Amino acid sequence: MPELPEVEVSRMGIAPHIEGHRVNKVNVHDARLRWPVPEQVHQVEGCRLLRVTRRAKYLLLETEQGVLILHLGMSGKLRVVPIETPRVKHDHIEIEFDTGHCLRLNDPRRFGALLFTEDNVEEHKLLAMLGPEPLTESFTADYLFQRSRDKKQPIKTFIMDNHQVVGVGNIYANEALFKAGIHPKRAAGAISKARYQRLVKHIKETLAEAIQQGGTTLRDFTRADGSPGYFAQKLQVYGRGGKMCMRCKKPLKEIRLGQRSTVYCTQCQR
Rank of each mutant, 00 (worst) to 15 (best):
L144C: 02
I155Y: 06
G189Q: 09
E123V: 02
T140S: 15
D119H: 13
P184H: 12
S192E: 14
L177E: 11
G189N: 06
K193G: 03
F158I: 07
P154C: 14
K125F: 13
R186Q: 15
K125M: 07
S148W: 13
G131E: 02
K152E: 12
L135M: 11
L127S: 04
M129S: 14
K152Q: 14
N120W: 00
V166P: 06
L130A: 01
K179M: 09
N120A: 06
A173L: 01
D119C: 13
I171K: 03
F139R: 02
A188E: 05
L144W: 06
D161Q: 01
G169M: 02
G181Y: 07
G131T: 00
T136M: 00
D119S: 15
K125Q: 14
E118F: 05
F158Q: 13
F178I: 09
I182C: 09
N174L: 01
H124I: 13
Y172I: 02
K193Y: 05
Y143K: 02
G167T: 03
L177A: 10
T117M: 06
D161W: 07
R149W: 01
A190Q: 05
A141S: 11
E175D: 03
G181L: 08
A188Y: 10
A173N: 04
K152F: 04
R147A: 12
P134E: 12
F139M: 02
A180Q: 12
K156Q: 13
E133I: 11
S148C: 07
Q164M: 05
T140F: 13
Y172F: 09
F145T: 05
G181M: 00
M129D: 12
K185W: 01
E175C: 05
F178R: 07
A141H: 03
S138F: 12
I191E: 03
S148V: 07
Y172T: 09
V168K: 15
L127D: 04
Q146A: 06
L144N: 03
D161P: 07
A180L: 10
H183G: 08
E118T: 14
A176V: 00
G169W: 07
T136P: 01
R186T: 15
L127A: 10
N120P: 00
L127K: 10
D142C: 09
A128T: 09
E118W: 04
G131K: 01
Q146E: 08
F178S: 09
I155G: 08
S138A: 12
K125L: 14
P154E: 15
F158D: 11
N170I: 03
A187S: 12
V166W: 00
I155Q: 06
Y172H: 15
H183V: 08
N162S: 09
M160R: 09
K185C: 12
K156H: 08
F145Y: 10
S148F: 06
A128V: 09
L135P: 10
A190Y: 04
N170W: 11
R147S: 13
E118N: 14
V168E: 15
T140Y: 12
F145K: 02
A188M: 11
P134I: 02
G181Q: 06
G167S: 07
L177Q: 08
A176P: 03
L126M: 11
A188T: 01
F116K: 06
